[in-house]
Amino acid sequence: MKRSIFSLLFLLILIPGRTQDEQETPDHVKENKTCLQCHGNQYYYYYNDWVERDIKERMNPYYIIDSSDYYHSVHHAFYCIDCHSTEYEEFPHAGYLRMEYQYTCLDCHGGDETYAQYNFEQIQVEFERSVHSTRHNEAFTCWMCHDPHSYQVSARSERPITETVAYDNEICLSCHANVNKFKLLTDRDNPNVIESHDWLPNQPLHFRKVRCIECHAKLSDTLLVAHEIQPKSQAVKKCVECHSSNSLLLASLYKYQAQEKRSKAGFFNAAIMNEAYVIGANRNYYLNVISAIIFGLVIFGIAIHAILRIIKK
């Protein structure tokens, strides 16, 4: 009896079930494979009818989509053809397809209650006032900064601030430290970010701990991430804008944390304290009071002692 139960279990194990791939792979991932088998790789293969042989070709690097980045991005649930023409299913792709309309954020997210917290309409308003939009008009699209194939939400998350800083600064540097992309929109020479920030004390630390937009975007009352990038002349240059108890970092970099967590244990700007130490911004109310009392007592004691010495002389 025992033996037959084991035999049955053994047989059950051997009976082929559906593969894990078949069970778990969502439809859009399966379908997107058609595109990503070429656009997800450095090389692609096709049969050339003219020369009647298989061809291995290099993929244009600007058209390579990292599938890992894509499926970790905010748009991970989309079919490629949700945004791109279905005619791309034909190979070779028709030349005119490269002129296809590229959706902007508002085309999908405008007036969408699901994403009301992101306030896309206000983002558009601020963006249109930004130096990016006023200098380059429609040539500067949302995609210049937010790659739809890899974009992730970084500010509105619980991940460490330094990761948000690195992620967001990478967006700025993708143009401002990349001459090819920068020259797409201008003939000017791309200024060297390191040299133009020479004046900034402890530059590497600032670059690691704060985002470019802390100084280069106008503070926004309504948006979590300000989008009105200012001309260079209006960038924050006064240290005390951040290094003070009324630090602007609380209204920018630490806005999400500041909204989520209230000050604790009497620390001013406790949200900042969790991640960094900003001289002048991190103060403790109780330590301030205690130190003022100690200092007052010392001065009082010295004064009394001095007066008594003079009187008793």
Partner: peptide, 19 residues
């Protein structure tokens, strides 16, 4: 000056104080 830095009443300008 740095610990109690205040944009309205700077004792010493912050970057100078740091240096």
């Amino acid at each position: 000056s740095m610990q109690y830095s205040n944009p309205e009443y700077p004792l010493i300008r912050f970057d100078i104080a740091v240096t």
